[in-house]
Structure formats: structure tokens, C-alpha cells
Design a protein around this nucleic acid. Sequence first.
DNA 1: GGCTATTTTTACATCGTTGGAACAACGTTG
DNA 2: CAACGTTGTTCCAACGATGTAAAAATAGCC
Lengths: 334, 334
Amino acid sequence: MAVTLKDVATLAGVSVKTVSNVVNGYAFVKPENRRRVEEALAATGYRPNVGARNLRRGRTGFLALMVPELSIPYFGEMAGLVITAAQRRGWSVLIEQTQGTRDRERATVDSLGPHLVDGALVHPEALEADDFPDAEGKIPLVLLGEHAVDVALDRVAIDNVQAAHVAVSHLVSLGRRRIAAIGANPKRGTSSLRLAGYRAALADAGLPSADSLVEPVAKYHRAEGAAAMKRLLAKEEPPDAVFCFNDLLAVGALRSVAEHGLRVPDDIAIVGFDNTEESAFSLPALTTISPDKVAIAEAAIDLIHSRLAGTESAAPRSVQPPFSLEIRESTVVS
Amino acid sequence: MAVTLKDVATLAGVSVKTVSNVVNGYAFVKPENRRRVEEALAATGYRPNVGARNLRRGRTGFLALMVPELSIPYFGEMAGLVITAAQRRGWSVLIEQTQGTRDRERATVDSLGPHLVDGALVHPEALEADDFPDAEGKIPLVLLGEHAVDVALDRVAIDNVQAAHVAVSHLVSLGRRRIAAIGANPKRGTSSLRLAGYRAALADAGLPSADSLVEPVAKYHRAEGAAAMKRLLAKEEPPDAVFCFNDLLAVGALRSVAEHGLRVPDDIAIVGFDNTEESAFSLPALTTISPDKVAIAEAAIDLIHSRLAGTESAAPRSVQPPFSLEIRESTVVS
DNA sequence: GGCTATTTTTACATCGTTGGAACAACGTTG
DNA sequence: CAACGTTGTTCCAACGATGTAAAAATAGCC
């Protein structure tokens, strides 16, 4: 059986509360007793029962992170950074996967009671505003990622419109004129910001906004990117550049271009989004939007932290970490 | 404040225990009362306090998964599958990252008390046998992945020696004669099984086992694979094939071969290991060993489950899920 | 109706911990 | 030396749930 405070107390010959006081660093404990307790602690290898402690304190020591799929590199990388950032604040992270379906996202957000976790970072894909439970008696939530959900919650995301604008403007500056987009998802709000940035950049460059060059996808997976690229290449006037809404789509696109016998960037330039590690090693390496992922993870954890520490109802805050354009071989010949 | 059993009981006009009985599906509850309780449950939106329940039951409802880094695709994919498998048994998964350092691995394994989690799946990289705490009073541990650690614990891993043998034999069957290996790590036991399989396959083919073609790496990252490949290409007699101990190394190797102006598979054939999603989309797509990841995840969860259900000390079991060789463009021209 | 047998409900203790109040020991002070 | 403020310790209740056992309600039978 596990060692409890009581066992330690018996061994040290003091009360349970005194041991508790030592464990929790309470100042007024006689040195003699402190020493005895510490010896007993060491001898027994005592470890606090987190559940019981939190039952008493009303905290759980856990945070939840909700993502569509961990197997998507961006989420794997983000999860890793979130875990690291949370650890510094003493939190362990619990990961929930939703596959990006609205039902499972709703079920997850719903189930996040204050008993289970102290707070949650949610990366919704299909969630609508009224899927969120009333803030009443709920734990702090932080929204991550691109989303146009109109709900009063803290959020952390780079400026997706601006980032997409930068990406597309880069293609424009290289002289590309028929610039396609892969990743729009008209049914969901998810990709609307990147799409808006894409359109704005075309408009700013005086290029026609050709909806025939906007390819929707069901999921942000490599295979979807490849399929979308195939459709673009089959058109009468194929594009001379493609802005993909994430790196996976771009990797898929690269493959379709190669299979079609064309060259990147000579025939078609490609820009991705996320700067996943993979994108630096693809052949050719991807030019991509690089969000400051460390900053995102830390900002999210900080928001939860201050929400728990601070007053009940401060206004929702929105943090926009920086991003940059990582220029690589898929747009510029090295 | 959160709703407790007491609140529900008051509303339904019965005792706390009766509500508990309804919640837990106890048979002998008068239909009338059951109905009233269920209405009260619905009306209040009651959710059990997991911490309190587990305090009483002596279970936590959590499993830990220890991996080096989530940003490594193999671990991201595995973590996703483990979470899914655990969910079916009612467990939430807590992820700990160690960066593959022995200190952090030891600290993590050490901290996994029975209060925090019911069991743990650990994927060690540098851990030695005596780093494991005595089984005494400990939670069930399951070892995952390649490891030669000699400790009496349940484990789940494909037959790494055999898998490596299959990979290398495939290269032999294509007529390759100077077959290199990237990923050996002499300091750690981690890669010794794959190395053994590689050597055995060479021996079986009657090829000399050339240690000069065995390239060690510090981490299983793309950049390390690229660097190792560069070293191989700089040799007087470069290899005509390379067996990489994971897909990331292989992806890195692909890049170095390309930068060196050689072609895959014409000049150099490459085989990876893990069949990460990325490997199907690299250019060229990687031939790779494909472990049955779903089977690994489920076997691991099942082991924990039966260990908790069963008698205290059954002999450690070892499960070897199947694997296959996925043949793609990096070894065979399509 | 009275008695037993069965079903249903309740009160109580308990899991391991911590907050708060009560209490004991202590050196100071008037 | 009695009263006092400090300091250190203990006792008790509580967090929310469930197991146990006893109490209550109901049914069945002579």
C-alpha cells in the first residue's frame, strides 16, 4: 500500500497535521520536529495523494488540451510545447482528440468539468459559438488556432489574415499571376481567415480573385492536398503558384506536381503554413508561414494561469503571437 | 459551484446514497425513485467528481504515456492511437515528455505513483534496468518500443531484429551489395536490436559486415539522418543502399542524396522504419518497415487492464504485434 | 394479524488531505 | 506570579463519493 501522511506521522511521533505542515512548507515547525519529519518522509518515500489534496484544495493539477488529431504534425509539435510550458506551472496535460468533428468537440468541451481539470486549451475545428457551455461555474478555456467563432473567450492565435496576405504577396512579388489556394472549407468557418488574407493580397496586387482557383478540402491531410493539386493541374489554365493552408496540404501538392512531370518552383511555386519540421526537409523544402509556436503555447498557459489567479470576470483577452515567412526552395531557386 | 450528489438528493427528496446507487446502476431502486432521481440528475446537470470518486475507489482514471518527444511523428501517431485505445476503457491519458534523456526518464518513471495514474506506458530511450523502481507497491508499467532493457515488466514491441532483417534482405534481393546503416547508437542499447538484424541479414546474404558503413546518430531526427548520409557519401566507396533506423533519418538521408546530385533509388536505395504518414508522401516515397501501430496501442492498454484486474504477480508478458514491409519508390522504380 | 423473507433506503464511516479553531508551551512583561 | 502575546501542535471538520450494515418498507404466508 501507498504511504500516507498518517504513516509518516506515526513514524515521526507527531500529528498528521504537523507532517502536512512540513510538506507544505509552513514556517512554524520546531527544528527538531522538522528534522524528524523529514527523516520519516525520506525513510518512507512518502508522496502526496494528488487526488485527495486536490479534493481538499479544489484544484486538480491537470489541464486539458483538445486537438483534432495528434498524428497531424502541427498538433504533435504544439502539444509537445504546451506540455513543456504547462510543466513549468506545475500542471500535467491531458490530451483529448476530436478528429475535428463537431459532435466530439462539443462532447469534449462539455465534459471538461472543474473536477477533472483546472482549465483547457481547445483547438476547435467545427465548433459553433453556441456549442460552448455558459461560462457560469465553468473552468477557464482558451481558444487556439484559426477560428472565426464569435464567443467571449480568451484566445491565442497569430494574425491569420495577415499571415496569409504575407504568403500570397510573396508569390506575387516573384511574378506569379495565377495563384491558387488549397484548403478553403466553405462549410466551416475554420479557413475563412486565411481565405480572406489570400483574397486581400490578390486584390492589393490588382490580380483578379479567381474562385476557380480556390480548392476546398475536407481535411488538412496530405492526401487531400495531393487530390486538390491534381484538380488544379487538370484545369485548362493551371496555376503558376499555390498557397496551401497548411504544410500537409503543401506536401501533398508537391507530390502531385512531381507526378505530373512539372517542377517546383520553376513551373509552380508552393507556399505552406505552420512551418512543421517536415517542411524544412521536403524536396524541395517548403516556403511556409512560421507561427511562433513557443510563444503560442506559453501565452495560452499564461492566460489560464492569470484567469485562475485573477478576478472572476475580466474581459476576454486575445493574444496574437508573431509569425514570419520562412523562404525556402519551393518558391525560390537556391 | 459544481453540483454534488447531495444537491441532487435534496432535489429528488431521497438520500445521497440512493442517488449514488442510481448513478452507478445499482439494481434495487424503486422505479418511482429512480425516475425522480434521473429527473433531478438531468435538471441539475450533475457530473461526478472524478477526484472524489477515485479517492474512494482507489483508482485515478488516468494513464501516463511517457515518450521522448511528441513532435516526432512516430510518437505523435502512437500517442493518438494510445489515447483512442485508452478511451474505450474509460481512461484519460496524460503525456510526459523526456527528450530521451536518462535523467528525465528516471524522474518520470519515479514520479508515477499510484495516486496520479493507474498505470503507465513508457517508451524509454536511455533508461537502464536498475533505474526502474522496485515493483513493490507500484503501478503496472508497460514498456514500449525497441529496448534491450533487462527488467521484469510487460512489454509490447514488434520483433525488431526480424524487422531489420526483412528490411535489409529486401535491399539484398534488389542486388545491393554495399548496404549501410544509419541510426546505430553504440552508447545506448536502444538501437542494438535493429543493428543485430542488419548484421544478421548481411551475414545470411554472405556479405561482409562492414562497420565502416554503420553510422551512429545522437538523435533520431531528420537533420541527423542528413548529416550521417553526408558522411557516407564522402567515403571512398559510398554505399549503394541504406537502411535507416527510422523514417526521419531516412527523410534526412533522401535530402542529402539529392543535394549530392545522386538519385534514389537508382544510385542509392533507402529503407526507413516506422511507416509514419510522412513516409508515404516524401519524394520519392519511402520503402519502410510498417509496425502495426493500432495493435501496439491496443495490446499495451490491454496489458495494463488485465494487470489491474488480475492477480498481483503474474509473470511478465511480452507481446509482439505484427509488422510488414511497405515497398515504395525509394527502393523500387515504379 | 403476526411473523418471516425480501426488497429498498438510509446513516455512518471512510478514502488522504488541508483549513481553522482550540490548545499547550514558552519567554516576556507589569 | 499572573496575565499576555508568540509560537508550535493537535484535534476536528470538511472536500465528494462509495461500501457496509442496519433500519425501514413491502410482500408473502399461515
